[in-house]
Amino acid sequence: MDIGAVLETAILQFIGFNACYYAIAAIGLNVQFGYAGLLNFGQAGFMAAGAYGLGQTVQIFEISLWWGLLIGIGYATFLGLLMGVPTLRLRSDYLAIVTIASAEIVRLVVRSVKFRGQFGGTDGLTGFARAYQQVGVDLGLDLAGQYGFWIFTFSGRNLWNLIVGWTLVAIFGTIVWLLMRSPWGRVLKAIREDEDAVRSLGKNVYSYKMQALILGGVIGSFAGMMLALGNATVQPDNFSRDLTFFVLTGLVLGGVAKVTGSIVGPMLFWFIYSFLDSFLRQLIDKPVRIGDFTLIQSTDVGVVVFMIMGVLLVLLMVYRPQGLFGNRKEMAFEGR
């Protein structure tokens, strides 16, 4: 058992690329779910919108990659309107149903044979990230080189992804932090608690909910763009329901309605996930048997890790429902 190696992997995941694009997605989800109380279970759909917006530029439209930013934002806005227009006047459960379904529809459309010409089918889209990597090269990074110190050594390519990704986290974190300290954020938080009270005070609740849904979705689309750029490819099956719920788990872990929670939560998610995964893999290198019954073997580790994470999440909800950074006092008034 090499606990040092286990910790090393986990720490690298803590600050790694996965944590980074999850954090962007969670910052967006936090606007919707944490502050405005909108049950968006389709963040993966918004992420796909951003990723495909970028991916289509070079391969499909044959235009510069940078237009993809606008296209991705446009797709995410359109998706937000599509989900919000029919549901935001209804009870919040409807939004949950519609968002989860919409994200699945997005995934099924982009991977379908019929739209292969637009979205590349199951192969996805590639060949668009060169302009992005070129910026790193222009700034003096050797993409194939090695950078860093001690355990923190990255390839130039990886380092560039981390620099851009964490910069985006900082930018969106700051934007959301500013917004939530403003009167706009106050209206959102009030809507989360009682729409009718807010309405009676002269605020257009529907419009605010739509703004929150779209803003959170657009931020989510940047997470998708980051994923696409980092991998230099867009794959439809990256944007499954799992993604939405992992991001949500990260957010809840960190604590909803807190910017720090939405950033550190996903980092911890990846830390814990990778810790458990490499720990168990080392522990169970050969099948554990009771008599001739195989209790667990190395191929089971993937599933067991998620089972343990589920249990941890339940424990968190019982003993610290506000998450690690959430506000305990706020939680105390739940359901009064």
Partner: peptide, 14 residues
Amino acid sequence: LGATGQKGEKWWNG
């Protein structure tokens, strides 16, 4: 929250 006509209730001003 009760005050009407708040500039900061527009997100771009926020």
